[in-house]
Design a protein around this nucleic acid. Structure first.
Lengths: 172, 172
DNA sequence: CGCAGGTGATTCAAATTTCAACAACTTCAT
DNA sequence: ATGAAGTTGTTGAAATTTGAATCACCTGCG
């Protein structure tokens, strides 16, 4: 995907200025920032996905699902919660889990108290594959992103995106 | 989509350019920043897409395609270039353009010098719909993002994502 | 010229995702 | 209890996306 500019966008492209001094023309740089963010994100996800695919045959979505399970207590999570965290529709999650199950990376099982529910658990094989995937993906992310930003910039990113996330959850 | 955290990212951080103030515990906040960025981006795109869909029946990809055409000289662009900018596979672009063509928003036409090529042009109807879409999408983006960050933060985002984009283009 | 080797774009089948029901179960107020 | 209403997940068909051919055309060299 690309741009998604707010419309009033004049191309940035080159090395951006250093200070936060207001521009001579009094214009905001926010639209440019939005566009840079949006376009770069598309290219970045494309590359991360390709790498994971080429090396381990995993989609980024597979990776993220395995990551969530890895972190979950007992390596186990309800379908619903998983769907929410993945920003997936329920049916998409069902499909996704089915494919991982066919590859032996996860297993489905019933939930204790609620006979409607289902849960997904990481298998040993899933845990092993994730370990390899994490090494690869971690390297990819460091090479392409983390090693290219300063701690200060990381702080700003963390602050900004955390704030945005809170706002998104409050008023959908 | 979710996280994509770097997971097992225990590695000395790259040299922080400026005067990064280390955390008390000496840990880097980069992995957290990455994760906040990644997760928030997923939720944000989901909401932007929903809004555009609900109001105007456009996918975010439709919007972006129309945006690129709107900005292009003569409201016209080659398939190849469009695909590159959209980070779309050629066949995906072909399909995407076909659906927009069926809705009367764009037209295909031959390219002057090269009889292999094809180009896409925005129609008047496409231009009109884009205007409405831009108003809506612009408001969405302002409400959810731009009005929630400072000019200084926007500057950092612009600087960071421009830098990352350059790096991505250099070493795929 | 004449064709070997690209390039630009489309096509087709298979994989994935969405959307709108549906089924199974829980909850809660009767 | 009882059944209306809400939850949880799945299913099936249609829409979208991918990936491997394929088609049509350009380029350059012998």
């Amino acid at each position: 995907m690309t741009s998604s500019s707010v419309g009033t966008a004049d191309e940035p492209d080159a090395a951006p200025p250093l200070s936060a001094v207001p521009r001579p023309d009094g214009q905001s740089r926010k639209p440019e920032a939005w566009r840079a963010y949006f376009e770069t994100t598309a290219a970045l996800q494309d590359q991360l996905e390709r790498s994971l695919r080429a090396e381990l045959g995993l989609h980024l979505a597979d990776y993220n699902l395995l990551l969530l399970l890895t972190e979950a207590p007992d390596h186990r999570m309800r379908m619903g919660e998983l769907a929410g965290r993945m920003v997936f529709s329920p049916s998409r999650l069902t499909y996704q889990v089915r494919t991982l199950e066919q590859r032996g990376l996860v297993e489905r099982c019933a939930t204790p108290g609620d006979r409607r529910g289902a849960a997904t658990v990481l298998t040993d094989e899933g845990r092993h594959l994730f370990r390899r995937a994490a090494a690869l993906h971690g390297r990819d992310v460091r090479d392409r992103v983390l090693d290219r930003i300063s701690e200060q910039e990381a702080d700003v990113l963390l602050r900004v995106f955390s704030r945005l996330a809170n706002a998104l959850h409050e008023q959908p």
